[in-house]
């Protein structure tokens, strides 16, 4: 018998092993749900799959009676739009400021302490300020996402760019490269893979800030819906919404990971994450 640390699962084995926790969770849910519904058929805490399917059908495939929209899709579109704009702005800031701070000593001296302090401000604490300044509309929610993740991305990128070997920068100069050419031909390619991984790490916080701001002030969105129906203990809506958000987050992460693999073939393999 091999030591435990040397034993690995093969193809089918790893599939079964990977699926096991999901199956266990599902079984546990079904047992608990059945037990509660047996005791009280009106129990709302752990709804049966039938009632969850019912709710999904109502929200996703039937137009809402009052507004005539498909609520799940309308919520998804609203949330993804906020998330997308917020992520795009934060990523652009991360790239531009990250390279500027990481590459240019003058900018580094001027900005680095400011960004270091800024990234310590708890974003949710400034949410009321954002609502006051930007109103309760879309802007405040997008700005919260940007404030929440941009400082991290700027710092991460600038540290990464600052790690460019001095040899590489000197070499570029001895080939006649100007500062701008070093930015576009050396720093940018060096920064891009890290930008993607930095963005992937920021997805979790971005969702957190999105749902928080939607919970507090919104008229649509995934976070808004969850907190709206919470009042009626509508677990048959909340649970599929949570699963849906998880799927969205997973897919975005997956796409970014594969984009990075395909776009930057020159990277040394870094071990799978």
């Amino acid at each position: 018998m091999k030591r435990l640390i040397n034993r690995k699962a093969g193809g089918a084995g790893s599939l079964i092993l990977g699926a096991l926790p999901f199956v266990l969770l599902l079984v546990a849910y079904i047992l608990a749900s059945d037990a509660r519904l047996d005791a009280n058929p009106n129990d709302k805490l752990l709804p049966s799959f039938a009632s969850i399917a019912d709710a999904v059908d109502r929200l996703a495939f039937e137009p809402d009676k009052r507004k005539g929209i498909y609520i799940l899709w309308a919520d998804t579109a609203a949330s993804l739009q906020r998330l997308g704009i917020g992520l795009a702005i934060a990523t652009a800031l991360g790239l531009v400021l990250g390279i500027a701070i990481g590459l240019l000593p003058l900018v580094r001296t001027g900005f680095a302490p400011f960004v270091a302090v800024l990234s310590m401000v708890p974003p949710l604490a400034v949410l009321p300020i954002l609502f006051i300044v930007f109103g309760l509309g879309e802007l405040a929610k997008v700005v919260l996402i940007v404030i929440g993740i941009a400082p991290f991305m700027v710092r991460d990128l600038s540290l990464h760019v600052a790690q460019l070997p001095s040899e590489t920068l000197i070499k570029a100069q001895t080939l006649g490269a100007s500062t701008w050419q070093i930015v576009t031909h050396v720093a940018l390619p060096h920064a891009m893979p890290r930008l993607i991984s930095s963005l992937r790490l920021s997805l979790g916080p971005a969702w957190l800030f999105l749902i928080s701001s939607e919970a507090i002030a919104a008229t649509d969105g995934l976070g808004y819906r969850i907190f709206l129906v919470r009042r009626y203990l509508a677990m048959d809506v909340i649970l599929p919404y949570v699963i849906w958000i998880t799927i969205l987050a997973f897919v975005i992460d997956y796409l970014l990971k594969h984009l990075s693999r395909r776009a930057f073939k020159w990277q040394a393999e870094e071990g799978g994450l």
Binding site: E167, K171, A172, T174, G176, H185, V186, A268
Partner: peptide
């Protein structure tokens, strides 16, 4: 500048 070329022990080519 381009008047002086250099090769270091490492990191002397562009990886991308």
């Amino acid at each position: 500048g381009a008047d002086r070329g250099v090769v270091f022990q490492r990191y002397s080519v562009f990886p991308h």
